[in-house]
Simulated scan of single mutants.
Amino acid sequence: YVQLRLAQAREESAELDARFAEQIANWGRQQQAAGLLSATDAAILNTERAVAAASRSQWRAEAQVALQILALLCGERADALAAELAPPAVVAEGFEVRREQPRTPAFDVSALPAQLLAQRPDLSAAHQRWIAAVQQQRSAEAARWPQLSLTALAGETRLRVGGASSSGSMWAFGPSLSLPIFDAGLRKARVQGAEAAADEAAAALQSRWQTAVAEVEESLQRVTAGAEREREVDAVRREWEGIARRSGAQAQAGLQSGTQRNVTFRNALAAYDAVLSVRAEHALAWIRLYRSLGGGWTADTLTNTASAR
């Protein structure tokens, strides 16, 4: 879904960029015909127009690919999903972007409770394997020592010979003692094997915990870095949007040429593209953090846990 929204937003930006590049290329051809621009400079402007058009086609195709993958994951028809997730249309004139991206949660995460990490399926499975190995070790250790058990038998017997029959009751009760003395070290070897299996399971559990902690730490660092980058590039985007608005107003007032305005618009779109990429990376970092903690938690979960502590 993040990739789909990113491709749709980049497609919109590329559509606007291709439109402004086309207008600049037309101006270059006019200037060349009037002898005010060299053929090389006009060719460069035309090449930039072609590159902008190719970028528009690329992101349109990327959006279709992302939609197909998302439809497969959701088990839905692609055409039905396309109608549901259709983005706003690109503006016919001017400089305006309408398509939104998924935004990350607005709260900061400085520490996460260990209970969240313990719910990871791989950690839970490793923990259960360790418990089973410990129980097996205890069972093998218990089998080395004498075991006293009590047995009881109760029932009824019936004997029939010819036409005569007789019946009676029977019962028995007594202890049973097992003395594992002469087993050639078999039980001791079983205990040693069970101990080794328990140690191996404990080491595997510790390794999985260390890996999980490292994954969470990495995800936290990526989320923090993504937030910082998003603030930085968003400030640049706002600056260029302000420049583009002023350039458009100056062009309408005759204080600036349309070509200068279009160049400014293209620079603003370049800054906007950087924001789109950083936002998508930030959202994906949050998803990786969510997955590394096994999922199933929300902002309220973190807030309530922190309050309880």
Rank of each mutant, 00 (worst) to 15 (best):
R49G: 06
T104D: 02
H282F: 05
T211A: 13
Y272R: 13
A299V: 14
N26D: 13
L177K: 04
R266T: 05
A89I: 04
A80F: 01
L289P: 01
R60E: 07
V223F: 02
L284Q: 15
R245G: 04
R231L: 09
A235E: 14
Q101W: 02
L16T: 02
R245W: 03
A194G: 07
A106S: 10
A39V: 11
A89K: 08
E228S: 11
E62Q: 15
W209A: 08
G185L: 04
V236A: 12
R160M: 00
D108Q: 11
E141Y: 05
T301Q: 06
T224G: 14
A299P: 01
R29K: 12
A89D: 11
L123D: 01
N267V: 09
L269Y: 01
A308W: 05
L123G: 06
S307M: 06
S139L: 15
A133I: 08
R222L: 10
A53K: 12
A39H: 08
W171M: 10
A244H: 02
V2H: 08
A196S: 14
R120W: 05
V213Q: 10
Q136K: 11
A203G: 05
S139Y: 07
A83I: 03
T305K: 07
D122N: 05
A189P: 02
R158H: 12
A197P: 05
Q250F: 10
W240V: 01
V97T: 15
M170T: 14
W240H: 13
A172V: 02
T301W: 03
P87C: 01
G193P: 00
E84L: 03
Q252F: 03
L177N: 06
V2L: 07
T40Y: 06
S176Q: 15
E218K: 11
T104E: 11
A184V: 03
L81D: 00
A268R: 08
A164Y: 09
R103S: 14
R10G: 08
I24V: 15
S178P: 00
D108M: 09
V91C: 01
E217G: 12
L159V: 10
G155A: 09
V263Q: 15
A61K: 03
D108S: 13
V236Q: 14
P180W: 06
L70F: 04
T40L: 15
D122Q: 02
T298N: 02
D183A: 04
S176V: 12
T47W: 01
E141T: 14
G168K: 03
A197I: 05
E12C: 04
R291H: 11
E11H: 11
A280Y: 04
S277F: 04
A9Q: 11
A143I: 03
A143N: 10
E228R: 14
R229W: 06
E217Q: 11
L36A: 15
W171N: 06
